[in-house]
């Protein structure tokens, strides 16, 4: 077992065997477990929750260049705790993992960073809000009085790409599930989950040395938990859809050995969330392509009959494979059908 595999296993916390995707199905012993009926509190919930096993700050942006070319950008900071305490210095059990990606119609650039908590190389502070690993940053630019995430600056770079994006929210934070308590399986596994799906983006991307000004939309997800998946769940297909009429849809299917578990939140243009009951969302893979030596469904039919939604999603780049310690597919998509718009698709466990 080399260090890379070793890290892949421990970083996303798998104390006993491979259970579910990246060990997320492991038990939560010693770690805090999300409870229903506990409202989110800001700004402190923008920061880290070291007593929970896993947490992320997850931004996806659909962008367009001056010539109309579409791009996608991803900025993710994962926190993974080996033990439910903050700790200090090198002995802190808090580990950090950053993923950054830039997707163009014919390329998908990926970079990954790892860091230890406790020495200042990576971390998140709630106020003034800053999330960072190495020279990648997500920093609040919000005016006094506004929520810290209303305006943020996001930067990251890899060997062959970089981006620097200014994000301005045009709507409120949205609590997913039941006031932020998001159930992930019929057995009751859950996480805390809220989003800011209403960002307008301006900034620039650098694609192999070429600097391109871009504009677009972005979606930030915040989620933390200690055991978000049931042991038999093997991965998920997760959609963040931003429709041209201003409405948003967050929906996912957790795959297991049986029917799977779907969940969705419809978000009206004014930010009012409307959680859907389990099973209300239907997602159907339409076309699989070989990606990184495996078959990955890249074209999907997404149906939410309660809202009269029946759309097809197609990727900007079918090969949006995140070749990271724990590999997955993540890339921008275009929506057509009853509703039009753009969004992001994440597929894990393939």
């Amino acid at each position: 077992m080399n260090v890379k595999a070793f890290l892949a296993a421990v970083l996303l916390a798998a104390p006993a065997g491979a259970q579910g995707f990246a060990g997320l199905g492991a038990d939560a012993q010693g770690f805090a477990v999300p409870q229903p009926g506990q409202p989110l509190a800001f700004p402190q919930d923008h920061g880290a929750h070291p007593e929970y096993r896993i947490e992320w700050w997850y931004l996806t942006a659909t962008l367009t260049g001056p010539d109309g070319t579409d791009y996608g950008a991803q900025w993710t900071l994962f926190r993974s705790a080996l033990a439910p305490e903050a700790g200090t210095g090198w002995e802190s059990p808090q580990l950090w993992l950053g993923h950054a990606a830039l997707t163009t119609p014919d390329a998908h650039h990926v970079a990954e960073r790892l860091g230890r908590g406790g020495i200042g190389q990576a971390g998140v502070v709630a106020a003034p809000f800053e999330a960072w690993i190495d020279n990648w940053q997500m920093v609040s630019r919000a005016a006094g009085g506004a929520d810290a995430l209303d305006a943020i600056q996001v930067t990251a770079s890899g060997t062959d790409f970089a981006y620097d994006l200014a994000l301005q929210a045009t709507g409120p934070l949205v609590a997913q599930g039941d006031q932020g308590y998001s159930v992930k399986s019929a057995a009751g596994q859950a996480s805390y989950y809220y989003s800011q799906p209403f960002y307008q983006v301006t900034g620039s991307i650098t694609d192999q040395g070429r600097v391109i000004p871009v504009t677009g939309k972005a979606w930030l997800d915040r989620e933390w938990s200690s055991q978000p998946l049931a042991a038999d769940q093997t991965g998920w297909d997760w959609f963040s859809l931003m429709f041209d009429d201003g409405a948003r849809l967050m929906g996912f299917r957790l795959r297991d050995t049986g029917e799977g578990y779907t969940s969705a939140t419809w978000i009206a243009a004014d930010g009012t969330p409307r959680p859907m009951p389990p099973g209300a969302l239907r997602v159907t893979p339409l076309r699989e392509v070989p990606v990184a030596g495996r078959d990955v469904p890249v074209v999907w039919r997404v149906e939410l009959p309660a809202m009269g939604l029946d759309v097809t999603t197609t990727p900007l780049n079918e090969q949006a494979w995140m070749d990271t310690l724990v590999p997955y597919w993540e890339g921008p998509i275009t929506i057509s059908g009853t509703h039009a718009g753009r969004g992001y698709l994440e597929m894990t466990g393939y």
Binding site: M1, V3, F6, L7, V10, L114
Partner: peptide
């Protein structure tokens, strides 16, 4: 071990007890 370059990683970390 988190930032060690791949070329420098020649030690086999034991299985079972992990990083902690």
């Amino acid at each position: 071990p988190l930032t060690l370059p791949p070329a420098a990683q020649q030690v086999e970390f034991g299985q079972g007890d992990g990083l902690l």
